[in-house]
Amino acid sequence: MTYLQERKLTGWLYLAPFVVAFTTFVIVPIGVSLWLSVMRFDLTSRESVSFVGLQNFQDALKDDYFWQAMKATLWFAVLMIPSMLILALSLALGMHAMNRGRNVVRAMLFLPGMFNVAVAGILWQWFYNGEFGLFNFWLKGAGLAPQPWLSDRGFAMPSIVLMSLWWSVGGTSVVILAALQQIPKQIFEAATLDGAAYFPLLSKITLPLLRPVLMFVVVTNTIGAFQVFGQPFLLTRGGPELSTRGVVQYIYETAFNNYRMGYGAAMSWLLFLVIALFALVQYRFLRRGHQ
């Protein structure tokens, strides 16, 4: 056997443990949810389980609440993804450039993400509370007008995004920082010796080298943003007037409060299509930038 052939076989050998776990605990449930999506399946009345074809999908497309939820999810994603990436990248570059105290700053930025979203949620609900909350108390103290952080349809989603950034931007910037640190220092030294200034260095050398990791960050954050659930659920329960109820919250309520598993599964697949579309566009875009 040639070395190359052996390498190919060994490749799958190294993949084997993951493939087994993935097949059992992801592929099988996915198969189940695919099956559910063409069924009427009410957990509370199993005698009425029946095949309904694409009925669930048609229902979803005609469901105003589904579209409203889709709009809320898109709005969150549009606000969240760019601000997240810009902030996380800046923080990572800032930390990378620090000659002292980097580890302390990294720990401080990372700390909020260690708290459970449930706790972060109750804390921020109190911060944002319009009449009795901390932020408006401070604003009033500074002689400014209190703001309807969570009770206004225009304000609520940006407020949720702000809390989400606080909660998760540290994690993303730690990932980017780890990637920066993996770039051999010699590359920077060589470039600096050539007299390259900071920003050209950044765009010509650093970012291209980071491309695979940035791709990871973009894709996972996109997925995370489209599946947002915990933060709006805890802060507003989806209000005001359902304007912050995202698709995953609607799916959750459909499947577990109303026990309509089939309909919930169908909506999950529609959400999957939207995310996949976005991820594909981003992938193309990042790839094209590469060439």
């Binding site: 309807p148 209000g239 005001p240």
Partner: peptide, 17 residues
């Protein structure tokens, strides 16, 4: 009454406001 907001009334009552 203050404008409606999720969870607002009870917190205000606890705070004696």
């Amino acid at each position: 009454v203050p404008p409606p907001e999720n969870g607002l009334g009870w917190v205000g009552y606890r705070q004696k406001k």
